[in-house]
Structure formats: structure tokens, C-alpha cells
Amino acid sequence: MQSSLRKKLSTYKYVLIMLPGLIVWFVLSIWPHLEVFPQAFYKWNGYSPNKVFVGWQNFETFYRSSAFKDGLLNTVLYVLFLFVIQTVLSVFLAVVLKRNTRQNRFFRTFFFLPLVFSSVMVGLTWGYMFDPNLGMLNQIFSALGIKSLESFNWLGEPVRAIFCIVMVHIWANIGYPLTILTAALQTIPEDLYEVSEIEGATSMQQFRKVTLPLLMPALLRITLLTVVTGALAVDYILILGSSVGSANEFDTWAVKIYQGLLGSNLGLPSAIGVFLGAILFIVFLIQYVVTKKVEDSIH
């Protein structure tokens, strides 16, 4: 039929329109990094013409080393802490600062401010905060007279360290989810709140019945972003950890990849990258299924 043919053509018309942009993106930003898949099966030092095929050896080496289990646990912890704390905090702050008063605008800008500092800088600064003997946090405790926390070693134990580093990550990056949520909150029509007021709803009920469901799509999007960001975040761990490239107790898989890139076998970090990519893909699938369900229920 003519109309179905026209429909088919119109679909391809759209594909054609976006094709140039997509091709540029793919070539410049994706294609060089696809290297990670074949590289995992070779042993190569990054510059010599000598590339040795080693099959699954890189994967086995990684699986056997303590870096596998410890790194996985650390990655999961990092993502978990980041997701829970950042989401709760940003939702709370976005809701509290919802109205467009001057004070709220000031706070929103203020909370956005750390984003303009580069992560290197943020890490260097927080290094001074966390130092067990001279750091600002411990000075505050000693000034408050809490003797037991005077020499507290914030990064001395992996779980504690990851918590602290995630707080640094949030300190620097809360501007992102806060801004997205603030914008999303604006799209919720005021009348819904007015209607629920009339019906006698408390603020908590308003939040649960009105705000939360309508924020859900934005929240789900932020979830995927947070998980991927947390899994791939290296900057803060690297700066707050060893500066000579030694492994830290709190390294995630992404950090191990980065450290491996400076070594003599690029195949190993590539293997870790494949592992990590596989897990992220599974997470992505889960998010896709959940989002579909939620969005269908809204429309």
C-alpha cells in the first residue's frame, strides 16, 4: 500500500538525518575504545610491534588475583553507597529547595559550585581534610573535645574509606542530580498539590503519592547514570590513594584498569574492562525492563 511505503520511507528518512552525527560520534568516540575487546586476549606493552596472543590468560590471571574479589566488593560498595546516599540526598534537597525563592536559588547555586572544580583539585583538597593527624576533620573533633576521634584514620579501612570517598564524590557532583531533579519537579503541575491539600494530605503523603510517582522516570534515569558513574569513577580514589600507583585496599575494578594501563601488559586491564562492561550491560538490561514497566503504568 502506498501509505505503508510512505511510512517506511519516513522512518528511514529519520535514520538518514541522524546518521552523519552518529557516524562522527562513533568514529571519534567509540571506535578507538572498542579496542578493549580484542586487546584482552593479547599481551602487549602499548608501543612495541610485538603483540602476543595469549587467549584467556589475562582473564585467568585477573580472576586468580586478590584484586578480583576485593575489587568487585569495593566496586559494589562504591556504587551502592553512591546510589543510596546521593539519590536520597539529592531528592531531599531538590524537594526542600523546590520553590523559587532567592534563598533557594542561592543554595542551589552553592551546591552546584563544586562541579566547577576539577576532580584532581577536589581530591587534593579532601586529602587535607582526611589526614589522620593534621586533617581538618580530626581538628574539628579535637576542638570539640572528642578525644577518641582525634587521630581517626578515615581511609584506613576499606569500607570506611569507600564511604568517605563516595562522600567526596557526592560533594563534588551533587549538582548534576540536584539540577535534573529540580527541573523535573517543575514539571509536576501545582494543581495536583492543591488537590491533595484539599483532600487533607500531609506533606509526607504528598511526597509519596504525588511527587515520588511523577519523579519516577527521572529517578530511574538518574539511577542508571549513577550506577555507571560509580562503576567507572576513578579520579577520587586515585588521588586519595597511593600517588605512586600502588594498589590501595579500596580500589574498585575501574581503578585497577587505570593502574594496569601504566603497566607492561595492556591485556590485563582490557580483560578487567570486559568483565566490568559485561556487568554494566546486565545492570542496563535490568534498568530497561523496570523503566518500561514504570512508564507504561504512568501513561
Binding site: 586529602g127 587535607y128 582526611f130 589526614d131 589522620p132 593527624n133 593534621l134 586533617g135 587521630s151 584514620n153 578515615w154 581511609l155 584506613g156 600517588s243
Partner: peptide
């Protein structure tokens, strides 16, 4: 070693020495 040396970074190790701690 000084307390908590596993948590002391390079600039802070110098600070400890410079501050005569």
C-alpha cells in the same frame, strides 16, 4: 612510625616534620 602512618600522604608527612610534631 608516627601514628596512623598508613593514612599519611606525602605533603602531610612533611607537615608533621615541619611543624616539629
Amino acid at each position: 612510625l608516627y601514628t596512623n602512618s598508613d593514612g599519611v600522604k606525602y605533603p602531610q608527612s612533611l607537615s608533621l616534620f615541619a611543624q616539629k610534631k
